[in-house]
Design a protein around this nucleic acid. Structure first.
Length: 921
RNA sequence: GGGCCGGUAGCUCAGCCUGGAAGAGCGCUCGGUUGGCAUCCGAGAGGUCCCGGGUUCAAAUCCCGGCCGGUCCA
């Protein structure tokens, strides 16, 4: 296939054969194709909806029927039906959710790393898009946060052409006219341009009566640095709106009625909202296609129009529609949450977990706004679980988990709401004039309190405020985009990486025979400190398993292997000393540190068993979030909603050990990617999704199967034994398990024993006998210390009294020396003393052999006359030292030892100054 | 992964901006008052001011690093 110019690509065979003409839309100026003359492109917002007036031959299709019809049509035309992928895009680094059917094949297929599972193929892929989350209900179904994208895809390789524009348009026209029974005259195909996920291409938007029912994209370009580069692979990427097809055939006033059927009425009941009469919905429906979501005023205008048309009071129309919009939002959001949760998302404060929490909080807000309880929320989830489990089996399987999560998240939501008054009060008390825009933004972004809630709470607290109009604009302007995930730094130097990529793949003895300890091989290349062999038993770091160590022997020279990494299919060994004398072709003898390796293998196999047990105990939302297998211990992080209880931990430990005792075989095999996915499901990819046509599957019989690169035992029996040593929550929604296996278990136990023995030596006896005694003793010492403190305190007070010189009615002065260097005690005593005696000025000189301290404390009346800071300043000038303080309390610290300090001098200065200031009247 | 907010008595928090004596309410203990109570009165105990470092005569307070929690976003 040659390069097609941008205009020519739209001139497809069918348009010529069946007399379609290219026309310009009177409204949006776009070009479109149709068999008849039309005033506009036939898509909203250039027209009202009128598809309900079009005679469609198809009987009303439910969502399920529409999906089946779509799949069968393309299956009959040579497309293989592919099972849908999860809505959580775990195979993508750049997006969290599956936003289109093509996302299933990006980037591995689009970048030609892996062939597609079939070609051509058809898929009904559930997708989630949260962009319009805030305004779903208003357009009565034009926008949904979840939808099924029906995609038929053909991948045209340079050497293998399948089909492109002509057939794609013919399929679309045939599908809608013959299968759905839409008169051909009603079809309009608008020329457009599509971009997304780093790809781009021309497209047709297919509309019927104002409803866009499909987009036919011809993906031909890669977008690189803002330039379009033609791809060798030309992809037919279509998206049929299955919900819209159901809507088109059912002609209900909203898409929600078409998609959710009886559940619409159920939700009205659950939420206690009256259903609007049909004429209200019909009237709103007509114009809803023209609504622009960015302008909330348009919805108000729509209400006015409906009210005029029906002669119904505006308030009535408004209350009907406002209530219905909330119900539609609830329907939509609950289903989105259900899809995410049943695909195993654990709500958290980051990543896809945050998106799940975001959706759930929207649901909770709707329910609490309407005064519905958590039971109503649960009922709403159960209603839809019943509705969808036939299409999505995972929804049926995750009931307990969904219920658990909803309850837990609802509780957190309520805590947030309960916190609101105290937080708002704090902000209100800061300034006198209500709340500023910045304060609203901070309340939202830092405390999760939306402005409407803040205003409500504030007026309940007796401070009516109004939400700043510019709030959402200000919020939007703060949004900055950042890459989702950062590329990891390579584990080998760049120049080694570059050179290694040119070398042939290393034969992996560690895969072929994981128990290989010694081997011979030939040197393929030497790259700096790294040696590359034609085959190796050294395991390179990967999949959370640490690299092997050991030695390489070349002739009579011995090199220590200190690191092993992989570059693609090439294994590189870093050795010491630097391999200066080695060259390609030499024979090498290798030996790995078997003790280390065997520990890795035990901990690795134990990790798989643990993960399998966790999934069995808690459910399929358990996903590996990270893992590390070292010599001394293994570590597994998994997604889960809460810390396990001690009982659960005992159960988990017991189950793992049972499987170890069972001596289950552990088998590794190479399986074509798509076969593996079919057999084991997506949970295969616990440690990430390898973008390769063939994956290595490690299966622990009846327990776990994962795509894994690591080395494993032949049987679980070899794990030897399993003990959890630490469990903690490392972040919201992620639980860390640490454990030891085999001989490490003995090491662990004897380390514990050593610790206890050392502790017992310290306390001189059995811990449980000695500790209570020691604690009692400590308590007694504490009490006795406080008695001594009291004694010193009263001694200090007497000393102050004895040295007291009355100067005037409002002034007395007392300068004393205290041998005690307990600063806290002195300060507290002085404070108590001067509080009782407003006229007192007390100076205490204390210290030790390194430094001295002069503390001046004054009662209220005295400090009105004598400034403590001034007194300290004078002392400082006479005897040195630095200090300062407040008018009634100041401190001076000198580097002199206490015995070198002239207390008489200090007394003279203080008494003179006090006399000077207090004698005057 | 990033931004923002927070971490002070058992609990809820004030104090931090502007460095200078560790605070309030509730709860707890004891005593008194009361027929009864979320009664009233009085006394008392209770602190690693998250951790580490820096600046300073002096740090809960300022600066840097870390940990933990919350929240918004990607």
């Amino acid at each position: 296939m040659g390069v097609v110019s941008r205009e020519d690509i739209f001139r497809v065979r069918m348009f010529r054969e069946r007399g379609y003409t290219r026309q310009v839309c009177g409204s949006c100026r776009a070009y479109y194709w149709s068999r008849v003359e039309r005033p506009n492109c036939g898509d909203t917002p250039c027209t009202d909806y009128y598809f309900d007036e079009i005679p469609v031959k198809s009987p009303p299709l439910s969502l399920y029927d529409a999906r089946e019809k779509f799949l069968r049509f393309f299956q009959e035309r040579g497309h293989e039906v592919i099972d849908p992928y999860p809505v959580v895009a775990r195979w993508r680094e750049d997006i969290y959710l599956t936003i289109a059917s093509i996302a299933v094949f990006q980037p591995h297929v689009t970048k030609m790393v892996v062939p597609p599972p079939a070609n051509p193929l058809v898929i009904a892929q559930p997708c989630i898009r949260l962009e319009d989350l805030g305004s779903v209900g208003y357009t009565l179904g034009r926008h949904l946060t979840n939808f099924i994208m029906g995609g038929h895809h053909a991948f045209n390789y340079p050497h293998k052409y399948v089909y492109f524009t002509d057939e794609t348009v013919e399929f679309a026209v045939e599908f809608f006219t013959k299968y759905i029974g839409v008169p051909e005259e009603e079809l309009s195909l608008k020329e457009s341009w599509w971009e997304g996920g780093g790809n781009a291409g021309p497209c047709f938007e297919v509309s019927i009566g104002g409803l866009e029912v499909a987009t036919l994209v011809f993906m031909m370009y890669e977008v690189a640095d803002g330039r379009y580069v033609e791809m060798p692979l030309k992809i037919v990427d279509t998206g049929y709106g299955i919900e819209r097809i159901a809507w088109l055939t059912q002609k209900t006033p909203t898409a929600f009625h078409a998609v959710y059927g009886d559940a619409v009425g159920e939700y009205h009941r659950i939420l206690g909202v009256e259903e609007p009469p049909e004429p209200v919905l019909r009237a709103a429906f007509k114009r809803s296609g023209r609504l622009d979501l960015r302008d909330p005023k348009q919805f108000e205008t729509l209400k006015k129009t409906v009210s005029l048309e029906l002669g119904m009071p505006e308030e009535e129309v408004s209350s009907y529609l406002d209530g219905a919009v909330l119900v539609y939002n609830a329907l939509d959001h609950v289903k989105t949450a259900l899809l995410m949760l049943s695909d195993g998302v654990v709500p958290s404060n980051s990543g896809e977990g945050y998106l799940a929490r975001l959706v759930l909080r929207r649901v909770f807000r709707i329910f609490s706004k309407l005064g519905a309880s958590v039971d109503a929320v649960l009922e709403a989830f159960e209603t839809q679980a019943r509705l969808w489990r036939s299409i999505y089996p995972r929804i049926g399987a995750s009931g307990d988990y969904v219920r658990d999560v909803v309850e837990l998240e609802y509780r957190r939501f309520q805590e947030l709401v309960e916190r609101a008054p105290s937080v708002v009060r704090k902000y209100l008390s800061r300034g006198s004039l209500g709340l500023s825009l910045d304060e609203y933004l901070e309340l939202y972004e830092s405390h999760g309190l939306p402005p409407e809630l803040v205003a409500e709470v504030s007026s309940r607290l007796g401070h009516p405020v109004s939400v700043p109009r510019e709030f959402y604009a200000a919020l939007a302007s703060r949004r900055v985009r950042a890459p989702i995930k950062k590329a990891e730094a390579p584990a080998v130097p760049v120049e080694v990486y570059e050179k290694a990529r040119g070398l042939p793949a290393t034969e992996k003895l560690f895969h072929k025979e994981p128990y290989t300890r010694r081997f011979s091989a030939r040197v393929v290349g030497v790259l700096g400190d790294y040696v590359v062999l034609d085959r190796t038993a050294f395991y390179p770091e990967g999949g959370g398993q640490k690299p092997d160590r050991g030695r390489l022997v070349v002739g009579d020279r011995v090199y220590e292997v200190v690191d092993v990494q992989k570059v693609g299919d090439v294994v590189v060994h870093r050795v010491r000393p630097p391999p200066r004398d080695i060259s390609a072709g030499l024979e090498v003898f290798g030996e790995i540190d078997w003790d280390l390796r065997y520990s890795h293998m035990r901990h690795h196999t134990a990790t798989h068993v643990l993960l399998g047990v966790l999934r069995r105990v808690y459910g399929d939302h358990i996903w590996q979030a990270g893992a590390e297998k070292e010599r001394t211990k293994g570590r597994l992080d998994v997604t889960h909603i809460r810390l396990p209880t001690p009982e659960e931990l005992k159960l988990i430990e017991g189950e793992v050990n049972k499987i170890i005792n069972d001596a289950r075989p552990v088998v590794s095999k190479e399986v074509p990617k798509y076969d593996a996915e079919r057999v084991y499901g997506f949970k295969l990819y616990q440690g990430g999704v390898p973008l390769e046509p063939v994956v290595r599957v490690v299966e622990v019989e009846g327990v776990d199967a994962e795509a894994c690169y690591g080395t494993h035992l032949r049987s679980t029996a070899e794990v030897g034994g399993f003990k959890l040593v630490n469990v903690e929550k490392i972040q919201d929604g992620v639980i860390r398990f640490e454990y030891v296996a085999g001989p490490q278990l003995v090491e662990y136990a004897s380390r514990l024993e050593d610790e206890i023995r050392s502790a017992e030596e310290l306390v001189g006896g059995k811990l449980l006998e000695r500790l209570p005694k020691l604690l009692r003793e400590a308590e007694e010492l504490r009490k006795s210390l406080s008695r001594y403190k009291e004694f010193y305190r009263s001694a200090l007070v007497s000393s102050i009294e004895e040295n007291r010189v009355a100067v005037s009615e409002s002034c007395s002065v007392s300068v004393v020396l205290s041998e005690l260097s307990d600063e806290e005690l002195v300060t507290k005593t002085l404070r108590d003393y001067t509080r009782e005696r407003p006229e007192a000025i007390v100076v205490v000189v204390s210290g030790d052999e390194r430094r001295s301290r002069v503390e001046v404390s004054e009662g209220a009346a005295a400090s009105a006359r004598v400034d403590a800071v001034d007194v300290v300043g004078r002392i400082s000038r006479a005897i040195g030292g630095k200090g300062g303080g407040k008018r009634d309390h100041a401190v001076l610290v000198s580097e002199k030892a206490l015995r070198d300090l002239d207390v008489g001098e200090v007394r003279r200065i203080v008494v003179d100054r006090v006399r000077e200031l207090c004698s005057q009247s």
